[in-house]
């Protein structure tokens, strides 16, 4: 599958949230470097580190060995801990070096989208896992049997609420026919954003079933349409879809009622459904119909109560859908 320039333009749109994650990562790399260099210089009293730190101006002017011995000796640490931290330093630097690559995923044709996303988040999550291990090591609470696995994979299910807030967006290239997004609901928490770049033909409303009150959902043709999505301080999912598909935006901040939030820019004819293996035409049609229904205000809106809206047929459906999603995404106790 060739990567297209929508991916790079998407990355540009998401520069804000990506850079918050990357700078937290960079800070962590520097934190670990700092811890390591104090530990290392405490371990071996080599003047090399000290000499380097003093810079070239010191050459010939400062007796670096003497300088090194005079500085207060810091606490000693065992070699295994230093080695573990070195591993973490490499891991974090590696993630930092991947730049935007860290947030890009390509789903092999025929693979399960949900699993690919889960694996990618688990990979990114190693940054959080590593940070935890650093904390545990510093406070002498680290245990191999419990914590070592955090460095191999740190699945989304284990992420704390603050980690979910800072998680980077994921940009996923996926073949249109593999675009089964329902399974992604469990990852739409905190500020997690997922952008699916659909290649080739795809169902007309693949994200319709993810619309729920607090989730920003967009189907768009072009990455420029993602600005508000990127800025939203909550979870969101977007799909960049071809001509044939529906274009819509569900912006949780746009109002209390589902038809205020959901703006449909283009709704293909119900017969615009395509032939896709495993996705029946009637199911695709059902998705379109759902979209239409959520987006439509009831004919005579009760002027008094916004709460009454949820009693309307569309409102009821949204509520039900939301309840279902919340149940699936229930992350309490993690």
């Amino acid at each position: 599958m060739q990567s297209d320039d929508r991916v790079s333009r998407t990355l540009k749109e998401l520069a804000g949230p990506i850079s918050s994650f990357r700078s937290a990562l960079a800070s962590a790399v520097e934190d670990v470097r700092g811890i390591l260099s104090t530990w290392r210089s405490a371990q071996s009293d080599s003047g090399e580190q000290r000499r380097a730190e003093l810079g070239c101006f010191a050459a010939g002017r400062i007796d670096v060995e003497r300088f090194a011995t005079l500085l207060a000796v810091e606490e000693a640490v065992d070699a295994a801990t230093v080695a573990r931290l070195e591993g973490i330093f490499d891991l974090l630097s590696d993630l930092a070096d991947q730049k935007d690559g860290v947030v890009r995923v390509k789903v092999e044709p025929g693979a399960v989208l949900r699993d690919a996303v889960a694996a990618a988040l688990g990979r990114i999550g190693r940054a959080f896992g590593a940070a935890r291990v650093v904390g545990l090591s510093r406070s002498h609470r680290y245990e191999d049997s419990l914590h070592q696995r955090f460095l191999r994979e740190y699945p989304y299910a284990l992420w704390s609420s603050s980690e979910r807030q800072i998680a980077p967006p994921l940009v996923v290239e996926v073949a249109g026919q593999d675009l089964r997004a329902e399974g992604l609901a469990e990852f739409l928490d905190g500020r997690q954003k997922i952008v699916l770049v659909a290649q080739g033909k795809c169902p007309p409303a693949p994200l319709a079933r993810l619309v729920s009150p607090g989730v920003f959902v967009v189907q768009a043709a072009e990455p420029v349409a993602l600005a508000a999505f990127a800025a939203y301080q909550g979870p969101g999912i977007a799909a960049l879809v071809p001509e044939s598909a529906a274009l819509f935006t569900h912006d949780p901040q746009a109002g209390a009622r589902s038809w205020d939030r959901l703006k449909v820019a283009r709704l293909p004819q119900e017969d615009a459904v395509i032939r896709l293996e495993g996705l029946s035409a009637s199911w695709q049609r059902e998705c379109l119909r759902q979209l239409q229904e959520i987006a439509t205000a009831p004919p005579a809106p009760a002027p008094a109560a916004a709460g009454a809206a949820s009693n309307g047929p569309a409102g009821a459906q949204v509520e039900r859908l939301a309840a279902w999603l919340l149940k699936r995404a229930d992350l309490q106790g993690l």
Partner: peptide, 12 residues
């Protein structure tokens, strides 16, 4: 999640 936040600030 301000820019100065480090992953290590997680108060483990």
């Amino acid at each position: 999640s301000g820019p100065e936040y480090s992953l290590l600030d997680g108060d483990v």
